[in-house]
Amino acid sequence: MSRGIAVDKQGRIKERAAMSDTNLLLTITVVVFFVLYLSAVLFLGGGFAKPQNFLNILNNNASLIVLACGMSVVMITGGIDISVGAVTCLVCMTCAVNLERQGGNILTVILIGLGIGLAFGVVQGFLVAHLGIQPFIISLAGMFFAKGMTTIVSKEPVRVTNEGFLAVKEIRITVPGLGSTNKLGEYIPAYVEVGVVIALLAVVLLFCLLRWTKLGRSFYAVGGSSQSANMLGINVRRTKFLAHVLCGLLAGLGGILYFLHVGSGDVANGAGDEMNAIASSIIGGTLLTGGVGNVAGTFFGVLSLNTIKRVVSSLGFDEAWWSNITVAAMLCLFLMVQSVVLLRRNKK
């Protein structure tokens, strides 16, 4: 697992080298995103130039941003969690059933969402950190478990009509200065949904956690080389466990945000989101081998991924399957680039 880090036996130097990796990959991501978006505005024009269109990317992907950040945290410690998409689905369905059939309210929804996420995080974290089982196998099982549980909770789609919930869902937060005038000359303010604010808050909090707290720094140390981290006196097992718990919790939060956005429970909710989250993290400069990554990069990764998807669909490839193929192709490209960079670095 120590690949990707400038090989040095002393922790400090190693960590500084890791940071420069992080910053390099972050820069690449940000540049890629701006080049992508600007060229979309220049060559495809129209829709891409409107600020509201940009904000819609945020509105549609608030949950993905949160999921991808959780994924990044696990990936920084050298693990992976592919159950997040299915957990999102389970949270949506359970919340919808709770609201519609059991007379729940917005508070119970939040509790259920975070509770389910926490449960998945704790179980998977325990199995990975304390029993040393491959994270992929465990989260694959977790993914299928969540999928199966979703259909046990309800097979039919559940549409939410609860008024208290719909009131929260319809909250629009106006962004000053970005509105546009329509053909009749009326001013239409640009807005974001309430989920976007929560997601951005989560990104900022996670950024601070990873950058300036002891726990955050130990995530990097464990992912860089768990052996050296152990020698530095870091509790490797506890750190890995906490990373999975954090990821599970964020998956629960992502589920709530997804639910807030679509307002219904459906077995197709969040399908493929684990893939989108992994792709966003990797595009955002998180290395699969651990030790390198940044949630700010992940945030831009989500934006890049969805910009690409929009570009592909506005080029006329709007059948549903192109979206999947695009994500896979982009993931493949970035994986190869990372791998080549790493192999070269190791040869030096």
Binding site: G272, N324, A328, A329, L331
Partner: peptide, 13 residues
Amino acid sequence: MVATLILFTAGRS
């Protein structure tokens, strides 16, 4: 598993 995740997503498409 990550490498095959690519085809896992794109395969059915």
